[in-house]
């Protein structure tokens, strides 16, 4: 009924920005106007989206989960080990996702049952999960299990567990028409999460907890259970990202995703989620993640180095937040001026 309302949302601004970005990049380098190329390039950042989308839910509750980058490696190495043990690779995939869920549940239970800062808890699990991912193959090897795969230790150290079956590699190489499977998967994931966040009781509870946890308790919100599920979803998303990277790089490694923390959190924050809780949308995170991803691709394509891109992304994050703060301060200033003038007018 009132469609102009949507024009003023942050998500709409992000959508405009995304289109503008692609146009500008395309003018500089026409490759970007090739839809197939554009879609193919999403493979380089789909894992960021897989992890950032459910992290949005956690941040809405005023929490944070930085252990996702370790869960990626843990899921990847789990998949590799289970497969090396002779299990069907898709069963191994399911086990890897289960590990992500359990890791998330561990975070969630710890966060919801204690008053310890979620940053501290997920910092601890960041180290713990990374350590498990690194240590497991060695331990299994010592126990006499050929954990490093057929190529042995030296090859493992260099490129992880390789030789994964073609059917598994096709998960990222395959396309529907010109759309890569992972991109379809991430859109579906975003759709499901979006419905969950914006249309279900669970999603509503997330906002209520983020805005006023005390009032949520007084209103009878099952705050502990909701928090556990938020962290479980975050762990699950990170595991999906790990599995996707495993297929993309055709090897299972413990250190996959190690440098993804900055882009993941940048995507969520740029997408409109407030680090202090209570706001954020799945669509916002999706769009911001894509803007960042294409920006990277575009800059790389015109010869900007990876390092400079990092600087740009960091600067973007800070300026976006600073602008948000300035707008806020200016808004309060205007409100005060208005109140004063009203008083004097009387």
């Amino acid at each position: 009924m009132n469609w102009t309302r949507y024009l003023r949302t942050w998500e709409f601004a992000l959508a405009v920005l995304l289109v503008l970005e692609i146009v500008v990049l395309g003018v500089i380098n026409p490759v970007f106007f090739n839809l197939e190329n554009l879609l193919y390039s999403t493979l380089d950042f789909t894992h960021i989206l897989f992890a950032a989308l459910p992290l949005t839910l956690v941040i809405i509750t005023a929490g944070i989960d930085i252990s996702g980058v370790s869960i990626m490696g843990l899921a990847s190495i789990t998949l590799g080990l289970v497969w090396v043990a002779g299990v069907n690779v898709f069963v191994a995939l399911a086990v890897a996702l289960l590990v992500g869920v359990l890791a998330g549940a561990f975070n969630g239970v710890f966060v919801s049952r204690t008053d310890v800062n979620p940053l501290v808890i997920t910092l601890g699990t960041l180290f713990m999960f990374a350590g498990l991912a690194q240590g497991m193959p060695a331990l299994l090897d010592k126990l006499g299990f050929k954990a490093y795969g057929s190529a042995g230790l030296a090859a493992y150290q260099y490129e992880g567990i390789t030789g994964l079956p073609e059917s598994f590699i096709m998960l990222t190489e395959g396309t529907v028409g010109i759309v890569p499977y992972p991109f379809i998967a991430v859109l579906l994931f975003a759709l499901v999460l979006s419905l969950l966040l914006h249309r279900t009781r669970f999603g509503r509870y997330l906002y209520l907890i983020g805005v006023n946890p005390k009032a949520a308790i007084y209103s009878g919100v099952p705050i502990r259970r909701v928090l556990v599920w938020a962290y479980v979803l975050s762990g699950f998303g990170a595991a999906l990202a790990g599995v996707m990277l495993t297929s993309y790089f055709t090897s299972a490694r413990a250190d996959l995703g190690g440098d993804a923390l900055l882009p993941i959190i940048t995507a969520v924050v740029l997408g409109g989620a407030d680090i202090l809780g209570g706001s954020g949308t799945i669509l916002g995170t999706l769009l911001a993640g894509m803007i960042l991803g294409f920006l990277r691709q575009g800059l790389l394509a015109i010869g900007v180095t990876n390092d400079l891109i990092q600087v740009v992304v960091g600067g973007l994050l800070i300026s976006a937040m600073a602008a948000k703060q300035l707008i806020h301060v200016y808004g309060e200033y205007r409100l005060k001026r208005w109140a004063l003038s009203k008083k004097e007018g009387r």
């Binding site: 009781r201 906002y207 209520l208 805005v211 006023n212 009032a215 949520a216 007084y218 209103s219 919100v221």
Partner: peptide, 22 residues
């Protein structure tokens, strides 16, 4: 402190305790 969700639509505070009925 304990009753209202200030940053959210008013109706959210009204329905916070009865979402299972919706």
């Amino acid at each position: 402190a304990h009753g209202i969700f200030l940053d959210l639509p008013s109706v959210y505070t009204i329905t916070a305790g009865v979402l299972e009925r919706l």
